[in-house]
Design a protein around this nucleic acid. Structure first.
Lengths: 209, 209
DNA sequence: GTATAATTTTACCAACTGGTCAACTAAAGG
DNA sequence: CCTTTAGTTGACCAGTTGGTAAAATTATAC
């Protein structure tokens, strides 16, 4: 009953595009509305505030990231460790496309908002914390699998290792955005697997060298 | 000749404190002035724009970071690889202090501004790019030294490795800020050294395990 | 075909944005 | 002591900020 519209979705997509390529505070409600072809009154009909729109936008990009990247990678039947390479390749391609069509490497939507808003908006901070946790779990499953297969040594700490990998990927992306150069992701990406080997191996490698 | 004042320095320090704990766009010229105990007219007597203030603030925190952290670490006479541990310890302590006194882990001033402004302000982006390059050079020197001492294998690629370490440190810090938990730096910090060992070692460790 | 519920529009708000300018004041140098 | 130079002040600007409220419009289910 009553009428329907896609104003809500339009606004969320505008938020993803505009806030994603600039920043939360650099984009106003007005611009969001203009981009979505909507009047400000409609905005506040659907969202109590810009913050709430952003929260929903975060939900959507996380869902999309899972559907378009994480799931395809982890459901694919390449060898366990190759999954990390595949994830990195997809990330590179995405950032590369971004640069081709906007002139800018936009980086990671989660990392971007995390650094801008973590100290100012507890709800947004918490949501991104949860997203990073879920992402880490994805990685952890692969690592556990790799240990089971004997590809990684049994002393491997899957929780610590997967978190280190998420950290490294975010750091790579931060540097890539700063240099506005997706190639950075290619170069740095080659280092991820090193985070997999346990500390014991590290010590061995050192004494062996 | 003419009179002197510390208004300029006050404004730069206010920028470091306010923008450092919140974000560039979340802090206005007005608030900057109030915090520095200065009228807006004075602001524009010293700085053509808020952007220019920020550029100078970046210069200062980079200089301070070198003087208070990088130089002490790299001039100290601990073993080469222990220098990385020392750097991480100092970073942890700094973020821990921040959390104790503001309730928030503020993260890295360079990373914060890089993600917020890289797509919007080319001059600020470029400045942070240069800072990251210089920081990487610092790390590279230690790695070259470690290779010379035989602590790291001769196949080590110092440029790639040092850049990977900077990326990893930025990623750690991003995650730490997101979780608002300095302990994250302690846990993740233990993984840095793994980025030192060359790809060849990684392969060996895998086949050995 | 009309009642009803959902959506859209318009006009509005006070507070604040980054930035300007001319008048004013204080100190250092000669 | 008085000129010069540097620093300070407050009033002002146009545009924008996030957000509100009520009237007007539309589609749908009955």
């Amino acid at each position: 009953m009553g009428r329907t519209s896609d104003t809500r979705e339009n606004l969320i997509n505008s938020a993803i595009e505009l806030i994603g390529t600039r920043s939360y505070n650099a984009v106003g409600v007005q611009e969001l509305c203009e981009h979505a072809g909507v009047k400000k009154g409609s905005f506040y009909h659907f969202f109590p505030s810009k913050r709430d729109l952003t929260l929903e936008a975060l939900d959507l990009i996380w869902r999309k990231f899972k559907e378009e990247t994480l799931d395809p990678v982890f459901d694919s039947n390449v060898s366990t460790l190759d999954k990390f390479e595949m994830l990195l390749r997809l990330s590179y391609e995405h950032q590369s496309d971004m640069k081709d069509c906007t002139g800018r490497m936009t980086g990671c939507g989660f990392g971007n908002l995390a650094l801008e808003l973590s100290t100012q908006d507890e709800e947004i901070r918490k949501k991104i914390e949860i997203i990073f946790c879920e992402w880490t779990k994805y990685m952890e499953i692969v690592i556990v699998q790799a240990v089971k297969e004997g590809v990684l040594p049994p002393e491997t700490d899957p929780a610590a290792t997967s978190q280190a990998m998420v950290a490294y990927i975010e750091g790579m992306t931060l540097l890539g955005k700063t240099f506005n150069d997706p190639c950075m992701l290619k170069r740095l990406g080659e280092g991820v697997l090193q985070l997999c080997i346990s500390r014991k191996d590290t010590a061995e490698a050192h004494s062996a060298g």
